Amino acid sequence: MALRGRGRARRAADSTAMAVAARAGFAARGLIYGLVGFIALQIAFGTDDGGGRQADRGGALSELAGRPFGAALLWGVGVAFAGMALWRLSEALFGGAGPDGTKPSKRVAAAARFVFYAFVSFTVLSYAVGNTGSGSGSSDRHTDDVTAKVLMWPGGQWIVGAAGVAVVGAGLWIALRALARKFRKHLRTDAMSSRARKVTDVLGMVGGTARGVVFAAAGVFALVAAVRHQPGKAKGLDDTLRSFADTPAGPWLLTLIALGLIAFGAFSWCYARWRKV
């Protein structure tokens, strides 16, 4: 009985540790998206220090590094993303919360997210120890380089085109799920006040839609690059965001998208508080 009790206590402690890791990861995600949205907002208003700032993860890390206690903030974000990666790995191995958490499709998705967040954590921590080329490189330059390499492969145009279609589909899926408030099933709504539920709904719908639109736009640019066999037509996050200012709506569309990304950052903080883990 004593051994059984100690086993339960150990499992409870492990579960608590994973919950803390997941919530820290969502908080870090919210911080990065909030900073990207803030930089994009400055670009829309023409106050981005002469255009030298990047509205992407690298730009967000540079913004953090320039703040008081910047090194500590970078370490905190890197460790938080490592915690998120471990939580996703635990979901892949043992299943996630909810009745469908053990489905093979959910485990595969969790494994993919583990790889993504492990990579993000590595780049942030590399940047924190001084390897600025790792975490703060332009997403636009990386996108151009990767697209150019793939287009040189046999069937490269088809690969880039398929990737573009997949990203467009992912963006539309993200936006539609946000508008349908599918995120609610992952929230502990019983622990939320009526006002908290309403605020989270608005942030999730607005933020998720903006995030989905950005993904879909990046996918369209990848498709154009494939069709024209011009790697420069593919755009990273920064150039994708800046392209919204080149539409007939001008900087106002970029302003709306930037505010949407800030809303998604705030929504991620709500997830950090009320997500089922």
Rank of each mutant, 00 (worst) to 15 (best):
53 R>F: 03
81 F>N: 08
103 K>A: 15
93 L>D: 06
59 G>P: 03
65 A>H: 03
72 A>V: 10
68 P>G: 10
123 T>P: 01
48 D>H: 04
71 A>K: 10
41 L>F: 13
32 I>T: 02
47 T>A: 14
65 A>K: 02
119 F>S: 08
32 I>R: 00
137 G>C: 03
108 V>P: 00
103 K>T: 12
75 W>F: 15
48 D>Y: 03
128 A>E: 10
77 V>A: 06
134 S>N: 11
114 F>N: 05
62 S>T: 07
55 A>F: 10
61 L>N: 01
59 G>C: 07
89 L>M: 13
55 A>K: 03
107 R>K: 15
29 R>M: 11
96 G>I: 08
63 E>Y: 11
56 D>W: 04
125 L>N: 07
79 V>M: 13
107 R>Y: 13
105 S>W: 05
30 G>M: 00
87 W>R: 09
132 T>S: 06
99 P>I: 10
41 L>W: 13
49 D>A: 12
91 E>S: 03
45 F>R: 14
38 F>K: 04
74 L>Q: 01
120 V>Y: 10
35 L>W: 02
38 F>T: 11
66 G>M: 08
50 G>P: 04
64 L>Q: 01
119 F>T: 11
38 F>Q: 12
68 P>R: 07
62 S>H: 02
70 G>S: 09
62 S>Q: 13
29 R>I: 07
98 G>Y: 09
47 T>I: 04
65 A>G: 08
45 F>V: 10
83 G>V: 05
123 T>K: 10
33 Y>S: 01
41 L>H: 08
113 R>H: 14
56 D>Y: 03
106 K>D: 12
129 V>F: 13
122 F>M: 07
130 G>V: 06
63 E>M: 07
31 L>S: 02
48 D>F: 07
61 L>I: 06
109 A>D: 14
71 A>G: 09
133 G>E: 12
75 W>N: 05
70 G>D: 12
115 V>D: 05
118 A>F: 08
42 Q>A: 14
63 E>L: 09
57 R>K: 07
135 G>A: 10
121 S>P: 01
67 R>H: 09
93 L>W: 10
83 G>P: 04
52 G>E: 15
142 H>T: 10
80 A>K: 03
132 T>N: 03
46 G>R: 07
142 H>P: 00
85 A>L: 09
65 A>Q: 11
37 G>E: 14
33 Y>T: 01
82 A>G: 13
79 V>Y: 12
99 P>W: 13
123 T>H: 06
53 R>N: 06
107 R>M: 14
96 G>Y: 02
51 G>H: 10
31 L>C: 06
132 T>E: 13
122 F>P: 00
58 G>R: 05
66 G>E: 12
106 K>N: 14
90 S>A: 15
83 G>T: 11
49 D>C: 02
35 L>M: 11
122 F>V: 01
70 G>F: 04
100 D>P: 00
130 G>T: 05
47 T>R: 12
101 G>K: 00
133 G>S: 10
